[in-house]
Simulated scan of single mutants.
Amino acid sequence: MPFDSASPTLSLPRWRSLSADEGDCHLSLVLEGSPLVRVRLQRGETLQVQLEEHARDRVQQALWAVCYWLFARDPGCQRLTWQLHQPPQEALNSGLLIATQVKGQYLCERSLFWQLPQPWLGQPLAGVYPQQMQISDGKRHPRRAPKPRGEVYRRFDARLGAWVSLRTLEIDQDLERFNRWQNNPRVLNFWQEGGSLEQHREYLNKLEADPHSLTLIGCFDDQPFAYFEAYWAKEDRIAPFYAVDDYDRGIHMLVGEELHRGPHKVASWLSALVHYLFLDDPRTQRVVAEPRADNGKMIGYMHDQCFHCEKEFDFPHKRAALMILGRERFFEGCKLL
């Protein structure tokens, strides 16, 4: 378990502090210094949770906080069974809780909890962007929503004790950093995109104008360490090589800062990146990638995060491995904390 009784504090998204008094049979949570909720716990085949008291008019927040605490404390916990006197309508409507055939009994499933878009996303979803098919460069695909700006995702990673976040790349702010990363010999070996500042400005301007691509900067505790490109696979060069769906997303990944290399860091940022893409549009059923087939280290990291290698294939510039992770597999085997 990532926590023990000596560290009864867990950071929440959007810089909030959640602390607890927890025993075998009880849990009390305090949010930003104010009592939020008290529940009774009974451990069995599933963890039984009985609501005893909560802050007035904050029942949804109280239910969410208890689920978050218990799932984050124990990555092996897959389901909570709640006992409630009143039907939690908001929680039922959102998918936080599921009604059962037993009166007053409700379930919270780990695989559903992590699909709730808030508070992980930087901007609340106003609804699914409407679908209208169009043709560009001879490819038929849905019209894409306008690109976001600023921070798009934030989560406290309990394994690292650090914030992992994603923000959109800003060319004037990030150009020198991007240039330095791309000219790193280790990165250059796989990306082959070394060049001058002006060449990289042109590269990023082209991506900024492309509706199918989104450029992102990955941060740990708000310090940039990586560059990611997320793209809609239907319009991408990868599309002819597999049975692509309209809302598949693809990723290109680059860790620029040596301090943030290693499997424990990859587990954090790769799960965050995939989590963001699945939350960004609930119609996205797969995330794909095409690393070089000889990049065994990266392929191994992706296997650790539940990707599978569908096949190897030839791009004009490289032999690639087609790596795929399905939505159901990601959330059912959810390694988020």
Results as ranks from 00 to 15, higher is better:
335 K>V: 01
161 G>I: 04
297 K>S: 03
289 A>L: 10
120 W>V: 00
194 G>H: 06
14 R>E: 10
241 F>S: 03
194 G>W: 04
85 H>T: 11
59 V>R: 15
337 L>H: 10
223 Q>V: 11
290 E>N: 10
35 P>D: 04
125 L>P: 12
77 C>E: 15
287 V>F: 04
225 F>Q: 06
166 L>M: 14
334 C>S: 13
199 Q>L: 04
15 W>A: 08
79 R>T: 03
134 Q>Y: 02
73 R>V: 05
220 F>T: 00
128 V>T: 15
100 T>Y: 13
193 E>H: 04
119 P>L: 01
7 S>C: 11
54 H>N: 12
179 N>K: 08
151 E>C: 08
183 N>C: 04
256 G>I: 07
124 P>M: 03
121 L>W: 07
34 S>M: 11
10 L>H: 01
112 L>S: 14
120 W>D: 05
321 A>W: 06
177 R>G: 08
72 A>H: 13
117 P>C: 04
158 A>D: 15
267 A>T: 02
273 L>S: 11
316 P>H: 02
47 L>A: 10
198 E>K: 03
63 L>T: 03
220 F>N: 07
167 R>M: 09
224 P>A: 09
257 E>Y: 00
252 H>P: 09
108 C>G: 05
94 S>Q: 13
109 E>W: 06
56 R>C: 01
293 A>P: 13
275 H>S: 06
18 L>G: 02
2 P>N: 15
123 Q>K: 08
151 E>I: 07
215 T>K: 00
73 R>M: 11
25 C>W: 01
272 A>D: 14
119 P>A: 02
246 D>Q: 06
119 P>W: 01
111 S>T: 05
23 G>M: 06
145 A>I: 01
12 L>W: 14
70 L>V: 00
118 Q>T: 13
253 M>H: 09
7 S>W: 03
69 W>C: 10
214 L>M: 13
75 P>G: 04
254 L>Y: 00
216 L>G: 04
256 G>P: 09
109 E>Q: 12
171 I>L: 11
72 A>T: 14
61 Q>R: 13
147 K>N: 05
31 L>Q: 13
279 L>Y: 09
265 K>L: 07
155 R>Y: 01
328 E>R: 13
220 F>L: 14
214 L>V: 09
294 D>W: 05
121 L>N: 10
308 H>C: 10
153 Y>T: 01
78 Q>D: 15
140 R>D: 02
209 A>E: 14
36 L>G: 03
33 G>F: 07
319 R>F: 02
272 A>R: 12
337 L>R: 10
6 A>G: 15
183 N>I: 00
314 D>T: 06
321 A>F: 03
324 I>D: 14
102 V>C: 14
261 R>L: 14
15 W>M: 07
86 Q>L: 01
247 Y>I: 02
304 D>S: 12
198 E>Y: 04
227 Y>F: 12
94 S>W: 05
236 D>V: 01
130 P>R: 06
291 P>L: 05
226 A>L: 08
149 R>K: 12
66 V>H: 12
44 G>P: 09
86 Q>A: 05
204 L>T: 02
49 V>H: 11
222 D>P: 03
282 P>Y: 06
135 I>F: 05
219 C>W: 06
190 F>H: 10
